Simulated assay, not measured.
Amino acid sequence: MSDHMKFGASGYEASKAFFLKALEPLGVAVVPDGPATYGFELRPQSKISLRLYQTGQTPAHLHLVFTAENREQVDAFYQAALAAGGKDNGAPGLRPHYHANYYAACVTAPDGHNIEVVCHNEA
């Protein structure tokens, strides 16, 4: 349904560094990169893209969820996101209240956005 999402970051450089490192385990790459007011675009292979740009305002917090191919990618995202300066908001593990195979991890990004990576596959 969606092609791309665009949202602002008041701490653009810190957010850019965070997203590049945290989403690296998912195979996300920067496609176009422009001035901070235009931003940069992250896109996994032939999937929805995410564009981040500099804003002078503190953005409302978003809950962004990315799909992992396997649970190892969820674990790798969590470690990479923490190493990139994210704050723990839910360690990797099953979330059976959603469904039996919902394996996810959540991290708070520099601008306060809740970033989640989920795998719906069986172990």
Rank of each mutant, 00 (worst) to 15 (best):
9 A>V: 04
48 I>A: 12
38 Y>W: 15
57 Q>F: 13
74 V>H: 00
72 E>C: 02
32 P>C: 08
28 V>Q: 08
22 A>R: 05
38 Y>D: 15
61 H>K: 15
28 V>M: 15
68 A>V: 06
50 L>G: 00
62 L>E: 09
49 S>P: 07
11 G>T: 10
78 Y>H: 12
65 V>I: 08
56 G>P: 01
10 S>A: 14
62 L>T: 05
50 L>V: 13
24 E>H: 05
31 V>L: 11
79 Q>R: 12
62 L>H: 09
76 A>V: 03
68 A>C: 04
30 V>L: 07
60 A>N: 12
40 F>W: 04
39 G>V: 01
36 A>V: 05
33 D>Y: 11
22 A>Q: 06
37 T>P: 05
17 A>G: 13
35 P>T: 13
26 L>P: 01
11 G>Q: 14
75 D>V: 07
78 Y>S: 03
48 I>M: 11
34 G>Q: 13
59 P>V: 00
70 N>V: 02
75 D>C: 05
45 Q>H: 15
59 P>A: 00
21 K>I: 09
42 L>K: 09
43 R>Q: 15
16 K>Q: 04
44 P>G: 12
73 Q>A: 01
26 L>V: 00
40 F>D: 02
15 S>L: 03
50 L>P: 00
38 Y>T: 15
18 F>G: 00
79 Q>A: 11
53 Y>K: 07
16 K>S: 04
15 S>E: 03
41 E>P: 00
49 S>D: 07
26 L>M: 02
28 V>E: 08
14 A>R: 11
35 P>K: 13
69 E>T: 13
17 A>R: 12
14 A>V: 11
18 F>M: 05
69 E>K: 15
7 F>T: 04
77 F>N: 01
79 Q>F: 03
30 V>I: 07
9 A>L: 06
31 V>W: 08
29 A>M: 08
50 L>Q: 06
21 K>D: 11
13 E>H: 13
58 T>E: 14
10 S>H: 12
69 E>F: 12
76 A>L: 06
26 L>Y: 02
40 F>E: 02
78 Y>D: 01
16 K>P: 02
68 A>R: 01
58 T>S: 09
64 L>T: 04
69 E>C: 08
8 G>M: 02
58 T>V: 14
81 A>S: 00
60 A>H: 11
43 R>N: 08
61 H>S: 15
21 K>R: 14
72 E>I: 03
56 G>D: 06
63 H>Y: 12
45 Q>S: 14
18 F>Q: 01
76 A>P: 03
64 L>Q: 04
63 H>T: 07
40 F>S: 01
75 D>P: 01
39 G>L: 07
41 E>M: 14
48 I>C: 10
36 A>W: 04
51 R>L: 14
79 Q>T: 03
15 S>N: 04
41 E>Q: 13
41 E>G: 05
61 H>M: 14
64 L>R: 10
14 A>D: 07
44 P>N: 08
